[in-house]
């Protein structure tokens, strides 16, 4: 969204300047941005881990009471607490976790003793796969729809695409999923749940995860499409577009060659936000399609107060968010010379 303003505050004229030091400037600027952002990102991860630890501490109950559930008695809870090392004060436990985490050792799940790296490994792969799949469907669709809607703004097509996209996002995710299952799975076209394991080949995998990917596509397309449309339309009143129009260029060419490049920054930002969402926010879709991703792991771990797992997953989510934003900013910078030549 930073990009929205940047383009607002003055679109670039078509780049005509000398090109000799161009690459060097790009490189050094981009490097500088990356370094600063990586440093900030690491600080951010640290804050996130503190916030998550603190919030999990505030939750009523702990791992011992959660594991025993209805059958908890004071005696067994005490024994289990002792065994799990939950009796240490919170700062001590946080420090122990942190000192392990910085050396890359996330430890074992306190609930069932499995190594956290192993628990997360396969699920991280699944989550990333689904996110990329959904992105591969939704990004092109939203760009095309957004550009067409901007091109034919206020036409019936524009209104319909808009209304359709808005209707899709105003249905809760699980509901979109149920409707897709009703139409596409009960008729036998696609499986209603995802049963994959590490040996499933790519073709089967794409087929089995089609419904969850489609659900997510419907959920995120509206946001990206609307931003594409808005960012382009936002530029259409600029003098240089007016100029191009007066030169007699075709509307499609104006949009694609003149408006779109300058509108890329906000679009990239929104895509990054939605990609981050596809990785971190899809627990409901995972539940409905029985998809073994990180979201379900996180919710389970939170409800069992398995803090080590909560922390590890939260860090992965935060890292995904930070790096996607970083990539988005770098791309925005490359596509916008005004940012490249910041004083």
């Amino acid at each position: 969204m930073d990009g929205l303003t940047q383009t607002r505050s003055g679109p670039r004229r078509t780049a005509t300047g000398g090109r000799t030091p161009w690459e060097d400037i790009v490189l050094s600027n981009v490097l500088r941005i990356i370094l600063v952002r990586v440093a900030l990102g690491i600080g951010l991860l640290f804050i996130v881990s503190l916030v998550i630890f603190w919030a999990t501490e505030l939750l009523p109950g702990d791992l011992a009471t959660q594991l025993l559930g209805q059958s908890a008695t004071p005696e067994t809870v005490a024994a289990l607490r002792d065994q799990l090392g939950l009796n240490d004060p919170a700062p001590v436990r946080y420090w122990m976790w942190l000192s392990g985490a910085v050396t890359g050792d996330f430890g074992v799940s306190m609930a069932n003793g499995r190594p956290i790296a192993e628990m997360i490994g396969a699920r991280l792969g699944n989550t990333v796969f689904l996110a990329l799949y959904a992105a591969a469907l939704s990004v092109p669709i939203s760009l095309v729809l957004g550009i067409l809607a901007a091109l034919w703004r206020n036409s019936v097509f524009d209104r319909m695409a808009n209304a359709g996209a808005l209707t899709a996002i105003s249905f809760p995710e699980f509901f979109v999923a149920y409707i897709l299952v009703l139409w596409l799975a009960q008729t036998g076209l696609f499986p209603s749940m995802v049963r994959i394991n590490p040996t499933t080949d790519l073709g089967d995998r794409l087929y089995m995860t089609f419904l969850p990917a489609l659900t997510l596509t419907l959920v995120v397309t509206a946001h990206m499409m609307r931003m594409t449309r808005a960012a382009i339309i936002n530029l259409m009143a600029s003098p240089y577009i007016e100029m191009a129009r007066l030169k007699g260029l075709s509307p499609l060419r104006i949009v694609l060659r003149h408006a779109l490049p300058n509108a890329l920054a906000p679009i990239i930002n929104v895509i990054a936000l939605n990609l981050a969402y596809l990785i971190t926010g899809v627990v409901v879709v995972e539940v409905v399609f029985v998809y073994p991703g990180l979201g379900q792991l996180m919710v389970d771990a939170v409800s069992n107060r398995d803090i080590a797992v909560v922390q590890a997953v939260a860090l992965i989510f935060a890292a995904a968010y930070v790096s996607l934003n970083l990539i988005a900013d770098v791309l925005s910078t490359i596509t916008n010379p005004r940012l490249m030549h910041q004083r």
Binding site: L40, G43, L44, L45, I47, V48, V51, I52, A55, T56, L58, L59, P60, T280, G281, V283, V284, G295, M298, V299, V302, A314, F317, A318, Y321, V322
Partner: peptide, 22 residues
Amino acid sequence: SRLVDALMAIPALIFSLLLLTI
């Protein structure tokens, strides 16, 4: 900004879940 970044880096649904449970 950094505080907001940190909060945004935590998935909204899970963050709400934490806060509402508390």
